[in-house]
Computed example of a mutant assay.
Amino acid sequence: MTSVHAGRDISVDIIRGIAIILVVLGHSNRGQMETMAIAPANLQFLDFIVYAVHMPVFFFVSGYFTFVSLSKRKKSIFLRSRISNIVWPYCLWSIIYCFVGHVMSSLTHVHHMVAWHQILLIGWQPI
């Protein structure tokens, strides 16, 4: 049963919401497991289930929206929108993250220092 409200498929929003909850649960669970010397089997099983489900759900939803977007507009317009909405913010955030990491390292101990040359590698080695 699919609910559509003003042209929006609410069932996809529900699926995304469940996947987001699974991400939060997965990160919380991993944080809990890291504080223990030996994680109980039930937390390890939960970790396996959550990480086996939430990323495939995001890929499925992303593929669905990519298909819908490509069917509505030209590929060149779609590509330009992906660059302006995904690539540009990703590059900007990586530069800001690297800069702030260097500033903070002069003030405190940084767990993982990011070298400036890593900015050039963000296409295949994300920070």
Rank of each mutant, 00 (worst) to 15 (best):
M36Y: 04
I127T: 04
S3V: 04
M33C: 06
V114W: 10
A37W: 09
G26Y: 10
V23A: 08
I14F: 11
M1Y: 09
V4C: 01
G123E: 04
V87I: 15
I86D: 00
I96H: 03
S11V: 02
S69Y: 04
L43M: 13
P40Y: 10
F65V: 05
S105I: 03
P89K: 04
M1N: 02
Q118A: 07
F59V: 05
H27N: 13
H117W: 15
I18C: 12
A19G: 07
L46I: 13
L79V: 07
H112I: 12
V4H: 06
H111V: 09
Y51C: 03
M113V: 07
G123N: 12
P126H: 05
I77Q: 11
F67D: 05
L107Y: 15
S62M: 11
I119N: 03
I20D: 11
V4G: 01
F99E: 08
A39V: 03
M55H: 08
S94N: 12
G63S: 00
G63I: 07
M1K: 04
L46C: 06
S3M: 10
V114D: 01
I38V: 15
L121C: 04
V4F: 05
W88I: 14
I49T: 04
G101N: 10
T2R: 14
S76K: 14
H5T: 12
L121G: 00
K72Y: 00
W88V: 15
S81C: 01
K72S: 02
M33S: 05
M1H: 07
L107N: 10
S81F: 04
V53I: 14
F99V: 14
I15P: 02
T66C: 00
V114M: 08
L120R: 05
V114G: 00
P89T: 04
R16N: 07
S62W: 08
V50P: 02
V61S: 01
Y90M: 10
I95V: 12
V24Q: 09
D47H: 10
D47Y: 11
P40E: 09
